[in-house]
Amino acid sequence: MSGLLPLTVHDAVVRRRGKTLVGPVNLTIDGTGTTIVIGPNGAGKTTLLKMMHGLERLRSGTVRWAAPDAEARKQQAFVSQTPVVLRRTVRENLTYPLKLSRVPAAEARRIAGDWAARVGLSDMLDRRAEVLSGGERQKLALARAMVRDPKVLFLDEPCASLDGRSTREIEEILSAVAAAGTRIIMSTHDMGQARRLASEVAFILHGRVHEFAEAPGFFEQPATAQARAFLNGDIVE
């Protein structure tokens, strides 16, 4: 319905100081559901997500949405691995994106309240965001990403500092969000979570998409030896 997808990444390369961090990458993201990005530390998951979202300058290649760029930008949201909070209250963090989109203040307040409740931050609306714990910051960053109801949501290890219960709660929210039509692209180190949420999997190794496959199939029968080793928790060369 959005006309945003498919997202087509063609021969995209990100380089920094003469070192290739990611690429060349070719992939297409379409349909509905959740793409889970996995791979060892330093493989390039964060860089890949940022690149798709437009936070990395491309050395070569293209990242194209079906919609015009300006349109596409408005309908995406990104939650980074180390969540950034504005030095304001929790409520102001949540209303800020809405204020940018000129949503009336009363409605913005209502939406902020709703999302705070969904991620369990209702009691903290008037607290300053700088004093939140790591896990609370992650929840806040997720809620803030959701207030504008994005069509595509990028998440970089959104449950990294969450306890088991919070992780479950966030997974439920993500499943509901995906069921409601938001396309999710998310990295994680939690293979249980990957299995629970994925409709497709991108396995990243040395800055490249090593394997890109439908979810149940990938976990049962990875095509490459490296993916198999990674899933088994072995060292991946």
Binding site: K50, H53, L55, Q76, S80, V84, L86, Y96
Partner: peptide
Amino acid sequence: EYHDLLISLN
């Protein structure tokens, strides 16, 4: 600190 967030929020 804010760079990525503000860019991301368009």
